[in-house]
Design a protein around this nucleic acid. Sequence first.
DNA 1: ACGAATAAATGAAACGATTCAAAACAGCCT
DNA 2: AGGCTGTTTTGAATCGTTTCATTTATTCGT
Lengths: 342, 342
Amino acid sequence: MRSASVKDVADRAGVAVGTVSHVLNHPERVSPRTKERVLRAIAELGFVRNDAARQLRAGRSRTIGLVMLDAANPFFASLARGAEDAAAEAGNSVVFASSRHDPERESRYIDLFEEQRVQGLLITPVGDLSSRVSELKARGVAVVLVDREGDPELYSSVSVDDVHGGYLAASHLLQAGRSRLAFVGGGKHVQQVADRLRGAEKAVAEHPGATLEFLPTPELDVLAGRSVGDELLKRPRHSLPDGIFCANDLLATGMMQSILLMNSLRIPDDVALIGYDDIAFARSAVVPLSSIRQPAEEIGRTAIRLLAQELEDPEAGREHVVFKPELVGRASTGVLESVSRP
Amino acid sequence: MRSASVKDVADRAGVAVGTVSHVLNHPERVSPRTKERVLRAIAELGFVRNDAARQLRAGRSRTIGLVMLDAANPFFASLARGAEDAAAEAGNSVVFASSRHDPERESRYIDLFEEQRVQGLLITPVGDLSSRVSELKARGVAVVLVDREGDPELYSSVSVDDVHGGYLAASHLLQAGRSRLAFVGGGKHVQQVADRLRGAEKAVAEHPGATLEFLPTPELDVLAGRSVGDELLKRPRHSLPDGIFCANDLLATGMMQSILLMNSLRIPDDVALIGYDDIAFARSAVVPLSSIRQPAEEIGRTAIRLLAQELEDPEAGREHVVFKPELVGRASTGVLESVSRP
DNA sequence: ACGAATAAATGAAACGATTCAAAACAGCCT
DNA sequence: AGGCTGTTTTGAATCGTTTCATTTATTCGT
């Protein structure tokens, strides 16, 4: 049981194959009468275009490949959604792949996408830009880097300004009248954590009298936040920070659990707390958590736009968009709920 | 700049196109000398097979379509991962799509997949089985239903036994010595909630003297859990339940927040709490939350297996796999941490 | 009613990989 | 050398769609 082809449709409708194709692709060039006949034949036979044949003829597909680090991460899920929506508006579709931080997996997907002759590739490379990516690029496939930067002459990129995010968070605490700040975060070697800390330092430097201490954590998860919190709360009251900025919302959640369980400090009265990422849980925490939101969907949309630009004019210069994250103020810093765009 | 084709490779290596193809697909049939020459030509030209042409010739693709309800939902993310792994083992790849509960979007993806001549489709239909799915099926495309059941003669399916999950949760509470149980859940019209409640009722019926009350909620999220909790805690102590089963982990999280904030009851000493879904947050809640886990990856793998079966022998009967969820005991029911498989 | 101009329909060629029957080749034995 | 077997290699045919140069049909003005 072979599925129907244009030939079958043409025979059934009593026209030539070219005519069937015209009905599908240039309906204005064919008379209403024949068009109607062809459409009926299509319906009767349940004809569905064979995309492989179209692509072969066209020389390229109507799809765009997206290789993300981890599809289970809500940030990438939103990013993918944005990319998908933007592509759909231009009649293209996005196929997703998740490298799960595994270079080999990444390489497999790149191969797959190249065989599929995707129009272009959006990718957050695992570690350094692998040679597979540069090969691809060298062969003329358009590549846009997502949430990473690379050789600015070669690759367009879309990323987020983590320094600014850190600055926003710390400034927010300072403006809420806090002056003894603490930054809770994993090792400084993680680029994003280091950037956020740097931004916070900048904000503090602008406020004479304000201080910032750095509380390192081994991991970036809830449990790590809780242990830092437990340690912190052993201190005498006067040496406690009155504003805590956690490098992500998971840490902040653990910190909040710790503080609330101890039951001696109130949030935000005694200590204000802000996280980073604005995960879904932040909003419904016991005390709704202030956070820094990355415009994930917007990043996805923009990546598609840059790709489209590059496809249109491969000779033009590369573009580099750096998004500013935004502050989401909630009860944990004494705000009802507000989003302030930069 | 057109990318190299088999013809180009053949010219370069001084052989016929058929030989190049053989090197790629039946290397044992070609002499080591020519093989070596062809491989060098491939490398020099950076030749990459054109998947569209292969598919066209082969009549079908090496991909399987997966339409899920919501890619951002961790359950589906895991399911997708399982499906992907299983497919990769057979040399196939899975392309994902998220209908986001939107029938129109679902329909668009089904069209796309059909045009791409996917080998088969795994789908969790939005609402009732749409006519697009039956059309597809009628045209001979293999379809496996995921997390849903349909006409058992037509569709193979993989689902989870929610009744059993409810039974497990309630039994666990009962075995922990609780007798005044409460079930917290959204409207009974949601199939899954209704099933879980049914399972809980069954468990309670088996324990003489035990009671179960039903506390309805408008939604299934953290805030709903918190308000039910706040209401509940207004009661006099002796009429409080000593074991609470929430229809999902979000509700349970809200309930836990409420109880801990009130600061008069201890978990699990005064009241034991169990959720459903085992989301990542359950493990790192203030008091680690017991829950019922659905074997999402396993479901994905199985769906691929059933699809492969159907592709191999389309005439054979359909298979229906119903997974048993498993209990994950944690501190909120007085367990250190254990997973018991059914 | 005739030719010109426009509109509609035609069908062969092309896209690139795979397959398969046929041809070329190599090795071996008599 | 000739015949035989088995291994390599060849290249035309094929998949289904789109395009484009042609052919055929239609409309209009005079």
